[in-house]
């Protein structure tokens, strides 16, 4: 936080290292694809190893450039995970709301992050595929039935849900995690997750360029995170990537 805003650059820009973790096939890559390309593939193939993508997120007072590691959920790659979360400032731990075991796995990841990742890491717990259980009013879902509480014919959909919102939310609160239910398919809440993370990154760790992850802003981070859209105070953020203000298509944030 040493630097103050330079007059010349309208918006300070800084990069944030983010890692996605979670059981295989919960939709990590799909969330990233939605966030980065606003696209969805119904038959996405499993990730092999890990994929690295970048996307900018425009907040009112600054630009966050996410450097995203989308890791493979399959077990044989698990031993490589530390390499990806080691320097991460943020983690998105994903489970599938229609698969109970995936929340168990998500909890393991959260515990591992809390033990091994840098102390200030912002963790978001994300329950994906809510479009499969309509009663949640993932309003945009193809099923049509509008938002709000299910109509009568939703019995099947109710069966699809295996992890309740309340259950997961309670766990997230307990562990001071951001929490969202999303659908990569419909786009429901996807940009919200990334915006919330962007807002939750403690200024102290926003060093702009690479290597920032080391900074580790301390425990206050997640607190700030939970309070959500606190992004306004960001005028004191450093900017290293100055010319960057070109605004790609933006991230809908």
């Amino acid at each position: 936080m040493a630097d103050s805003t330079q007059a010349s650059a309208p918006k300070p820009s800084s990069s944030v290292k983010l890692v996605l973790l979670g059981e295989a096939a919960v939709g990590k890559s799909s969330l990233v694809l939605r966030f980065v390309n606003n696209d969805f593939h119904p038959n996405k193939e499993p990730t092999i190893g890990a994929a690295f993508l970048t996307q900018k997120c425009h907040l009112p007072a600054r630009i966050i450039k996410f450097e995203i590691w989308d890791t493979a959920g399959q077990e044989r790659f698990a031993s490589l995970a530390p390499m990806y979360y080691r320097n991460a400032q943020a983690a998105l731990v994903v489970y599938d709301v229609t698969k109970a075991s995936s929340l168990v796995k998500a909890k393991h990841w959260v515990a591992e992050l809390q033990r091994q990742a840098s102390p200030g890491i912002v963790i978001a717990l994300v329950g994906n595929k809510v479009d499969l259980c309509e009663e949640d009013g993932a309003g945009t879902s193809g099923e049509g039935a509008g938002e709000g509480e299910a109509g009568g014919e939703d019995d099947d959909d109710a069966v699809a849900r295996k992890v309740g919102f309340k259950e997961a939310k309670a766990y997230a609160d307990e562990e001071s995690l951001l929490f969202f239910e999303t659908s990569a398919k419909t786009g429901h809440n996807v940009s919200e997750v990334f915006t919330a993370i962007a807002n939750a990154i403690p200024e102290a760790s926003l060093k702009g360029a690479r290597g920032a992850g080391a900074a580790a802003g301390g425990g206050g981070a997640t607190q700030a995170a939970i309070s959500g859209g606190a992004g306004q105070e960001s005028s004191r953020v450093n900017l290293t990537a100055k010319g960057d203000g070109k605004a790609q298509e933006g991230c809908a944030c």
Partner: peptide, 10 residues
């Protein structure tokens, strides 16, 4: 189809 860069152990 991933659209990014990849790091693949093999």
């Amino acid at each position: 189809a991933g659209g990014g860069e990849n790091w693949i152990p093999l």
